[in-house]
Amino acid sequence: MLLAQVLLNGVLLGALYGLMALGMALVWGVLNIVNLAHGALIMLGGYVVYYCYTLLGIDPLLALPVAMASMFATGYLLQRFLLNLIVRGALLNTLLITFGLDVVITYLGQVVFTADFRTINPSYSGANFMLLGLTVPVLRLIAFGIALLLSSALWFLLNKSGLGRAIRATAQNLVAARLYGVDPRQVYAVTFGIGAALAGAAGGLYGMISHLTPYIGSSLTAKSFVIAILGGLANPFKVILGGIVVGVAESLAALYIGPTYTDVVSFLLLVVILVVRPAHALRAA
């Protein structure tokens, strides 16, 4: 029974992890940028929801769209006026510049938000119900649902809309996309914006389930990266699935090996996957 409960928690949490990774996978797949500031964007989204709730009294779940919209704008501007300038540079340079951004955002966060632990605590945050003898935390279930909803939305956007076609064309072939009248600068900025918006939603949910500090970014970046590799860069649902794998692995590790190892699990998983199945990982790039 304990095992079943741990697995359930892992699955519910894992879907949220998947949502975190969704934006990173999208940006990586389309723009070929491994965004090391992705976790910092998640953190920002979390604080947007936090302040909407504490200062304006907006229900955190209703504040999620606010976080998404503001993060979309942030992401759009970052890509349009900064990252577009170096996007054709060497891989190391995109890694470094996004790392620099991570540092900047994190320390701006420290100044503006202070380093205190914050949690978003709506009235229903502790609620849960029993199902088949298992405790189901309501908030985690909601997060799970939102993760599925947003990944479906992303799938439809990419596969069934004109914008999606433009994004996919740009990812495939920049030159050809230009020939079809797509402005890659615009598409890149919008794509990065969508990635940031997804990060914003994930951050809000993360702030409700876990806690926020300005420093959570780097570990979330690492986790997102692992999941993006696990799930591949093409299919949103597989990314969510990758998140669930990591979530379950972490929960099992906490149960059997000890809670100090949870953060290591995803990395261990990554190293093992990369080494055992490099072909799979390399094709994803």
């Binding site: 690492a222 692992v226 290591v264 990395f267 990554l270 990369l274 490099p278 990982a281 790039a285």
Partner: peptide, 24 residues
């Protein structure tokens, strides 16, 4: 031997992971 088979960002992040694992 195993890790140097990886390339690009995979190598970079795998090494980052290793330092985390080693610390733990």
């Amino acid at each position: 031997l195993p890790i140097l088979r990886l390339r690009g960002p995979y190598f970079a992040i795998a090494t980052l992971g290793l330092s985390g694992v080693m610390g733990a």
